[in-house]
Design a protein around this nucleic acid. Sequence first.
DNA 1: CTGAAAGCGCTAACAT
DNA 2: ATGTTAGCGCTTTCAG
Lengths: 331, 331
Amino acid sequence: MMKPTIYDIAKKAGVSAATVSNVINERGRVGDKTRKKVLAIMDELQYRPNTAASVLKGKAAFTIGFFVPDMLNPVYMEYVKHAEERAQERGFSIMMCSTENDPVKERLQADVLRQKNVDGFIITSKFQNEELLREIEREQYPSVCIAHERPDFQFDSVSGNDWEAGIMAADYLFSLGHTNIAMIAEKDSVSSYGRIEGFKERFRKKEMKQPLIRYAEASIDQAKAMALNLLKQDDRPTAVFGGNDVLAVGIMQAARTLGLSIPEDISVIGLDDTFLCQIVSPQLTAIAMPVKKISYRAVDLLIEQIEKGGTLKSTDLFPPVVIERDSARKL
Amino acid sequence: MMKPTIYDIAKKAGVSAATVSNVINERGRVGDKTRKKVLAIMDELQYRPNTAASVLKGKAAFTIGFFVPDMLNPVYMEYVKHAEERAQERGFSIMMCSTENDPVKERLQADVLRQKNVDGFIITSKFQNEELLREIEREQYPSVCIAHERPDFQFDSVSGNDWEAGIMAADYLFSLGHTNIAMIAEKDSVSSYGRIEGFKERFRKKEMKQPLIRYAEASIDQAKAMALNLLKQDDRPTAVFGGNDVLAVGIMQAARTLGLSIPEDISVIGLDDTFLCQIVSPQLTAIAMPVKKISYRAVDLLIEQIEKGGTLKSTDLFPPVVIERDSARKL
DNA sequence: CTGAAAGCGCTAACAT
DNA sequence: ATGTTAGCGCTTTCAG
């Protein structure tokens, strides 16, 4: 017994397929008893419209392509999680797609998803493939960038305010009396750049000597290695700012292997406020990015684009907030 | 300028659509120069076949529906991650879908995904909705269960050997000289049940008094609360086994708030070996489930079902292995 | 080796 | 208020 089609319903209800379609889509005028009858039969036969057919007719697929660069940093999983949650509420599904920051994969998967008629893209990090980005822009393919502004492109973007987060990190540490402060920042990342600039800005304003900044990939081990190096110096900083939580965890581990205790010997703070912060010990004080809000807004924006057609070119910036826990102390 | 269709290619190449279809699908006999010409034009016009159309014709959608129960336990994210990785290698995409262990959501989303013509399901935990499961079984909808055997259903399943993992946990702790051991186990979970039974089995075999077992949801806070209670007893255990890593982290936090140091005052071990183990301090000794292998195998099995049609009814069980780190010590 | 034609399930004018 | 019809882009016999 095959899955019932709209014709099976129509036949059984003694009406035409068009009428069934009309009741499904609540379009056109349909008599009240006709509607009820059709509805009853759909229910009885457990009818489910075939999305492929309506997509072929030009309707939406109610599916969003979601790109993540790498799963090493849990913040991306948190973005996916919340986006899926919101998408479900809005009647959309998420096709998840990890690109490993590889321009070839980006191109491949973007093509695959477009073949599959996903209605739009959410991009959680810088695509390496600028050509692809230009193409998406040109075709006005509905897309929004998360945590990753691209002033050079006509994309909607929604992020936490990285620059402000950098500032808050500096100010918070200053307020604790620290002056000899270092930062370990993520390499090659747009958001990282904002965070660094905000951070440095504050030192400049106070006419203090610029903080030491080291760069690492967003991996615990790399951060640990950089931090080890940093903390072995003669004039060891009293506080280290991790440009994201993963980096901060690496810093904590470095401190521990050097026998430095946190926060007594050294303060460390993170940025993002992923669940990592609550798992490490001591729990990590961090500048929190409103990840959930960002995801929700990105999904809503994208759906608006899909419904209205075309890009809105809005740039939403959410303010960060500091979450005090136990990894930083007053000097 | 619209996206080119197969007809555009056909016209420009001076052949029929059927021929173009043949070269795309490498079917039928096509002359060598015809093929080359068609290929060249496809490339030039950046032609991408529209999946909706071929799905409508009855071909595969190259898409897998992946159900996760909740994102609180990172092990599910690790399953998704690896499944997506493997799916991509095999030319499939993943539609991720979280069900929050809610039977209504399960039903809703399963219906949605079937409408969207996903080729099969991967289910990472017990569906609450048995009726749905029976339906999937009856329709022979390609499906495989991960980490979640259902002997009562005709589903393929691939898991780590939970029973053996429980045994290994007990044996490992015995080998360290512990005898007063407790376990905090996850409530209402099929895998948890196996883990518990294996664990108890070993005590029975040794004719020791049965271990204390407490139940909690897979959340750090709940585990912590249970552990707090457990560790305040007069006859405090010298080792606690967390039925999964999240639970183990909760136990560690409880120990810490009681001023007990790990592993000096108390040993704790986890199960799954998610990245949590490497983040906490001390790093967590754990029984490792081969999550990556499981995901890969599940994807491969599912694709085999999709290609061959119908279920295979195989039950793959991967052996766990203990990963020693720093959270347990010899008594 | 290649083409003509029918049809997958649904939608949207346009008729009635 | 409902039905007729054409067609979305592709695949697949079946002829030639």
